[in-house]
Structures are given as C-alpha cells and as structure tokens.
Design a protein around this nucleic acid. Structure first.
Lengths: 121, 121
DNA sequence: ACCTATTTGTCCGTATGTATG
DNA sequence: CCATACATACGGACAAATAGG
C-alpha cells in the first residue's frame, strides 16, 4: 500500500488517510470488491493510532465508498450497477426522517404501508 | 434537560442521546437557534464519557440537525418549511425500486441496513 | 490588545463487546 | 471454539476557535 501521512499538515490525519483511499479508487489502484488492510495493520504501517484509521474508514463509509463489517474488514464500493440511485434515495430518506424526529420503526411502518396500498404493481 | 440513558439497552449510548435530541426537536422542546448543554455538562449529567456525548452531537451535525463550533457549543437547526416531504420521498423510493425490479423485501432490507449504518452492522 | 475560561476537534491509549469466518 | 476485525465506551492530553473580562 505504501501510503504515508504528514503530522505537520494542517489536514487531520484521518482526512489524509481518507484522501489516499479516494485517490487510489479514482486512479483504479483499488477496484470494486477489493479489501483494504485491517485498520490495525494500516495504523501500524502509518504509525498512527488504530482509531485514527477507523475514523478514516468511517468517513469513507459515510460517503458510500466503503463497506465496513465486523470481522470481515473494509471492502471498496466503486459503484454498484445494481443499485445506482436507490442507495442515495434511501440515505436521503433516512436522513430526512431522523432530522424530523421520526423514529426508525415508524419510518419502516410508513414504507410498509406505502408498499401495501400502492399495490397496482 | 433531564434525559437519561440505559447502558443495558441494545442501542449505543450515543444513539440514545442523539435520539433524545431528535425527539426533543420534533416535539418542540428544542427550537431553532437554541443551544444544547456543553458536552462536558451533559456527559456529567448522564454519567457517560465526554466523548460519547460529542459523538452523539457529531451524528446530529451530520444529519443537519446541529451546528457545532469550538468555543460556542451546539446550536439546534430546526427544519425549515421547505423540509422534504417524507411521504413523497417514500413514494419515489418505492416507485424507483419497483421500476428497477427490486423486490419489496429487498428494499426493506436495504433500508434496515442503512438505518443500522452507524450503530449496528 | 491581552489574557483567560470555555468548548469542540483531534489524537492517543486501553478495554470490552460482537459479528464474521 | 477460536482468531480476526470493526464497534463502542472509557480515559487523558493538547490544539484551536470562541466569548468575555
């Protein structure tokens, strides 16, 4: 992987790490489905704390660039031909609902209701 | 403020705190421009770590519900009249998913997965 | 202009929990 | 059952922006 960070840089370390991943994806060094090194290993390699790398991974996950799962690691999501816009719609829906104080369970109920009464499909 | 958290609850502490704020905003207990207690104070009040409260605040900031600034604190950003119509978003989501041949059950699964992103996997 | 207190931001360290394989 | 790896929570330290005297 051979990346490095600069502690004297104004940008936070986790942002530097996230940027490195973004650039690698953009340049095709990392492709869809590929696995990033375990946060622990990358942290040791960069000589930063484990949490700093995890923070970077979580930022990338929030951007939809990474899939994180316990015990499995971090998998690159370049772009799914399967669900191009749906993911974004869902994210916006959840974000809006939470911003309006609608509990997750209630949102699910609303979705189920909509699926049911819109049965002309 | 008089909130409380339950360490035995399955939901993470920071999510419980964030939910409390969302609810308070939704119910009008917290209005636009109002200031949340300093993370340090709320942490002491709830008997949790400072970082746990800060994490909750940052989650809310990412949702557009809070504005955080050093030295100033956490200010509520109540939703505008131009707040997105949840019902419209749901309808659009269901319509798009069906148009792409995504089964309702799978859409539900995607929604649940997206909701969990942040506390569970 | 200076200084100080406040408050969030980042980073480090440690420990424990939990899903995965 | 066991090892791996992310998730959460605790703790401490210092930096940086803000507010107020």
């Amino acid at each position: 992987m051979l990346w490095q960070v600069d502690p004297t840089d104004a940008a936070p370390l986790y942002e530097q790490i996230a940027s490195s991943v973004r650039r690698a994806v953009a340049e095709g060094e990392l492709t869809d489905g590929e696995r990033l090194p375990p946060a622990k290993h990358l942290a040791a390699s960069l000589e930063v704390n484990l949490h700093t790398v995890l923070k970077a991974y979580q930022v990338l996950r929030d951007e939809g660039c990474l899939e994180l799962r316990r015990g499995r690691g971090a998998v690159i999501i370049a772009k799914k031909p399967d669900a191009p816009d749906i993911g974004e719609l869902i994210s916006e829906l959840v974000r809006s609902a939470r911003a309006m104080g609608i509990p997750d369970m209630q949102l699910m109920a609303l979705l189920v209701e909509r699926m049911g009464n819109g049965h002309e499909n």
